[in-house]
Computed example of a mutant assay.
Amino acid sequence: MQTLEGHSNSVLSVAFSPDGRQIASGSWDSTIKVWDRESGACTQTLEGHSDFEGHCSWVLSVVFSPDGRQIASGSYDRTIKVWDRESGVCMQTLEGHSDCVRSVAFSPDGRQIASGSDDHTIKIWDRELSTYTQTLEGHSDSVLSVIFSPDGRQIASGSDDRTIKIWDRESGVCMQTLEGHSDCVRSVAFSPDGRQIASGSDDRTIKVWDRKSGTCTQMLEGHSGWVAGRRSKC
């Protein structure tokens, strides 16, 4: 058992590297820390997110690229930054959202990033072009979680509007809207075969959905508080 200590404020997001050897964490202290999984030592502190007045800005989401060479972070400063894992240098700053970025996800091939924001949209970014190529609109409130399907053909999103939406990656069309949670959907995840989706909510439940039919096949209860994090508005 390990306790990783070093942040000076609440930790909002954590992610394992693909090889399981490192952990990245994003915090209200405006930093991303990279930890060695075996020793528990902090090996890097990444700094650079700042608001429009130059003050440090909260890091709300972190994720490793599929090859483990980069880390993407979403922030209260409305940007996504992509960091070189080895050097700790910020390689890209992606700008386009009009409100804070709640969630970031790499496509399976690492060429694209999806981001969910309090501006109610999801943006799809081309890594090579350093710009967004699509804006997915349909949620009526903050987009709190985004993830690509294992084959990269769909994107799932969870929102403060209490729904999960499934989007066709190529066309940007919303294919399904899954409803059943009684509070905001904080987290979404595809099963490895892409046939199911799990969602965590502030209604204290986890629901498992059949991807094809859109029906809830299981509801897991037992938590005494919100599932998948702290409820907070930027």
Rank of each mutant, 00 (worst) to 15 (best):
residue 4 L to W: 04
residue 27 S to I: 01
residue 71 I to P: 02
residue 122 I to F: 10
residue 166 I to C: 03
residue 188 V to R: 05
residue 156 A to W: 10
residue 9 N to I: 00
residue 229 G to P: 07
residue 64 F to M: 04
residue 110 G to W: 07
residue 96 G to R: 00
residue 142 S to T: 13
residue 75 S to H: 13
residue 103 S to L: 03
residue 224 S to Y: 06
residue 101 V to I: 09
residue 8 S to C: 13
residue 207 K to C: 04
residue 39 S to V: 10
residue 7 H to N: 00
residue 67 D to M: 12
residue 56 C to E: 11
residue 109 D to T: 10
residue 88 G to Y: 12
residue 34 V to K: 02
residue 77 D to Y: 07
residue 51 D to C: 11
residue 98 S to V: 10
residue 86 E to I: 09
residue 41 A to W: 02
residue 155 I to D: 01
residue 170 E to H: 08
residue 64 F to H: 02
residue 106 F to K: 07
residue 62 V to R: 00
residue 214 G to C: 12
residue 189 A to V: 14
residue 44 Q to L: 13
residue 72 A to L: 09
residue 28 W to S: 14
residue 132 Y to W: 15
residue 225 G to Y: 14
residue 162 R to T: 14
residue 222 G to R: 08
residue 211 R to E: 10
residue 24 A to P: 02
residue 12 L to T: 06
residue 185 V to N: 03
residue 140 S to R: 06
residue 8 S to T: 15
residue 100 C to K: 05
residue 188 V to H: 08
residue 22 Q to K: 15
residue 16 F to D: 07
residue 188 V to G: 01
residue 8 S to E: 15
residue 60 L to S: 09
residue 233 K to H: 13
residue 71 I to H: 03
residue 16 F to P: 01
residue 177 T to V: 12
residue 122 I to S: 06
residue 200 G to K: 04
residue 188 V to P: 00
residue 223 H to S: 14
residue 176 Q to V: 07
residue 27 S to F: 03
residue 123 K to W: 11
residue 7 H to A: 01
residue 182 S to Q: 07
residue 210 D to P: 04
residue 48 G to C: 04
residue 28 W to I: 06
residue 198 A to R: 08
residue 108 P to Q: 13
residue 60 L to Q: 09
residue 207 K to H: 08
residue 125 W to R: 08
residue 132 Y to G: 05
residue 3 T to G: 01
residue 169 R to V: 04
residue 52 F to S: 15
residue 122 I to E: 08
residue 193 D to C: 08
residue 36 D to E: 14
residue 65 S to T: 07
residue 93 T to I: 10
residue 124 I to H: 02
residue 114 A to F: 10
residue 161 D to Y: 02
residue 83 W to M: 03
residue 186 R to N: 12
residue 77 D to L: 07
residue 13 S to E: 03
residue 124 I to S: 03
residue 168 D to E: 14
residue 66 P to T: 12
residue 104 V to G: 01
residue 55 H to S: 15
residue 137 E to P: 01
residue 128 E to Y: 12
residue 202 D to A: 15
residue 91 M to D: 13
residue 206 I to P: 00
residue 146 V to P: 07
residue 80 I to D: 04
residue 119 D to Q: 07
residue 106 F to G: 01
residue 133 T to K: 11
residue 96 G to T: 08
residue 67 D to W: 13
residue 109 D to A: 13
residue 149 S to P: 06
residue 214 G to F: 12
residue 81 K to G: 00
residue 88 G to E: 08
residue 163 T to W: 05
residue 115 S to G: 06
residue 212 K to T: 12
residue 40 G to F: 08
residue 93 T to H: 01
residue 11 V to D: 00
residue 210 D to E: 14
residue 224 S to Q: 14
residue 71 I to S: 03
residue 123 K to P: 06
residue 8 S to F: 12
residue 122 I to P: 08
residue 215 T to G: 01
residue 130 S to L: 04
residue 231 R to K: 13
residue 68 G to R: 11
residue 118 D to S: 15
residue 42 C to R: 01
residue 191 S to G: 12
residue 168 D to H: 02
residue 196 Q to Y: 04
residue 96 G to Y: 04
residue 2 Q to E: 10
residue 90 C to H: 05
residue 32 I to R: 00
residue 63 V to L: 00
residue 129 L to S: 15
residue 140 S to W: 02
residue 205 T to Y: 09
residue 231 R to Y: 13
residue 84 D to Y: 11
residue 3 T to E: 10
residue 132 Y to M: 09
residue 188 V to C: 10
